[in-house]
Every structure is written in C-alpha cells, then in structure tokens.
C-alpha cells in the first residue's frame, strides 16, 4: 500500500503530541520520521508507571481486504522480508485474522499482535527474565538476554511471538533484531518514548479507516478510556484473566 510506505505525516500525530506536551513531558528527541531521530534536547524518563498503554481496535472499521497495519509494522521494524524462512517460520509481529461465527455466519476481521497483558504468561515462564513488562505496561523481549528457548512462545495464548529463524541483515536503525531470539510487537516503544504512537495506528488512519486507537488505559480522561467505557469492547480469551491491554470492539 502506497500511503503506508510514506512516513506518518506530522498532522497524524498532532493530537497525541499536544496532549502529552500538556502533561509536561518534554520530548527527548525530535522524531522526523520513524527511525530518524535528531539527537538533541534533554533526556526523558519514558517508561512511566502511572500509565498503561493500550490499544482499542474497532473491528467494524477493519476489513479483511486491508492489511495496512501489517505492512506498516513490517516496514517500521524491518521484518517484512521473510528471506529463506518458510511461511510458518516467517516473522509475525502482527497478523490479520478473519473470524466467522458458524452459527450466525457473521464475520469479522482484525489484527492480532502482542496483547500486552498485565499478567503476561510469557514473562512468568521466561527463564532469564528477558521477557518483561515495562512500567507503562508494554511487554517486551530484552533481546540482550534472550537465549532463544522459545518457552514464551509455548506460553503465549495469542501466538503473538515469532522466532528469528535465520541471520538478519539490513535492520532498521530504530529496531534491532537478530537470529536466535524471540520477537513480537513492542507497541513501537521508540515512537511512544518520543511522544508518538505506534505506526499501525497511523497506517490504519492513513488507509482511511482509523480503526485503531492508542492511549493510556490508566487515565480515565484519555480518549481510549472514554471509548472503552462507552462501547464495552471485548478482549481475546478474557477467560484466561490475563488483563490484556488490547481491546476489540464489535466481536
């Protein structure tokens, strides 16, 4: 998709930035485009324990023919090229899933990525502590201490993680990744730390759908919290009580 390849436009991120500026968060760096950062300005302590970042996905605005979020994520983090890997070995930070209710015939299409659980099973099982949850709720793999045991992939109910099956070259500067470690959606931490929002959110808006809303779940006044109160969205496998940070409206 053409509009996805171009960097998210400045106006696309406007409201988030101003809202965060109001909160007094000085920007650590000026992000010109994904991965392109001017190293200037003061340091910011970004992972804020008073926040919990999450997503609300409006599946009624999502379409099975569209994969703008997937394409944009692949370009942002440099995982679109599967190289020699078979399809079932290919990197998969986010995927589009089609759901059909056999009883009613109703269908829905939605992206599934790391659900950024409050009680993430991957973190519990990781032997080295490489899987961890940041203070602001983002679940990550510290790939400096990941030994590639893949137990987290066994434990994740969402199949959100993938293993890097072969040597990687040409990584994006802002998103290092390499063979033998496990990776997943990182909610675009680099962008979030710079006051931005995940690239999938912008790509979805760029595709004219605006089905993904990003924001602070712990702030009752945030747009995402208000919408969640309004539409009472569902969460995938809520019965497992993992308190996921990704909500789905309309399923």
């Amino acid at each position: 998709m053409k509009d996805v390849k171009t960097p998210p436009s400045a106006e696309g991120r406007g409201d988030t930035v101003s809202r965060r500026s109001l909160l007094g968060a000085a920007l650590a760096a000026v992000t010109l485009a994904p991965g392109i950062t001017l190293y200037a300005g003061p340091a910011a302590a970004a992972a804020d324990g008073a926040k919990r970042w999450g997503l609300l996905i409006d599946t009624t605005r999502c379409d099975s023919g569209c994969s703008a979020c997937v394409t944009a994520c692949g370009a942002e983090h440099g995982w679109s090229d599967a190289g020699r890997a078979r399809p079932d070995q290919a990197p998969q930070w986010v995927r589009k899933v089609d759901v059909r209710d056999p009883a009613t015939g109703r269908t829905a299409s939605l992206p599934i990525m790391c659900q950024h659980c409050a009680k993430p099973p991957c973190v519990d099982v990781c032997p080295t502590g490489a899987s961890f949850k940041r203070a602001d709720g983002i679940v990550l793999v510290d790939r400096h201490i990941c030994i590639g045991c893949r137990y987290c992939m066994m434990a994740c109910p969402y199949k959100a993680r993938s293993f890097v099956h072969e040597p990687v070259t040409g990584q994006r500067p802002g998103s290092p990744r390499g063979m033998g470690t496990v990776e997943a959606c990182n909610l675009c931490v680099t962008r979030v730390d710079a006051g931005g929002r995940p690239v999938c959110v912008d790509a979805c808006a760029g595709a004219g759908r605006s089905a993904i809303l990003f924001g602070d779940l712990d702030d009752p006044g945030s747009a995402i919290s208000r919408r969640i109160r309004e539409v009472a969205p569902a969460r995938i496998r809520d019965d497992l009580r993992l308190d996921t940070g990704v909500y789905y409206q309309g399923i």
């Binding site: 190293y39 300005g41 340091a43 910011a44 302590a45 970004a46 992972a47 961890f132 400096h144 979030v192």
Partner: peptide, 10 residues
Amino acid sequence: TVHGGIRPAN
C-alpha cells in the same frame, strides 16, 4: 533504554 525507556541523546 530497554527497560526504562530512557533514551538520552547521543
């Protein structure tokens, strides 16, 4: 950086 999100310039 990875755990705290602290990204000082340079």
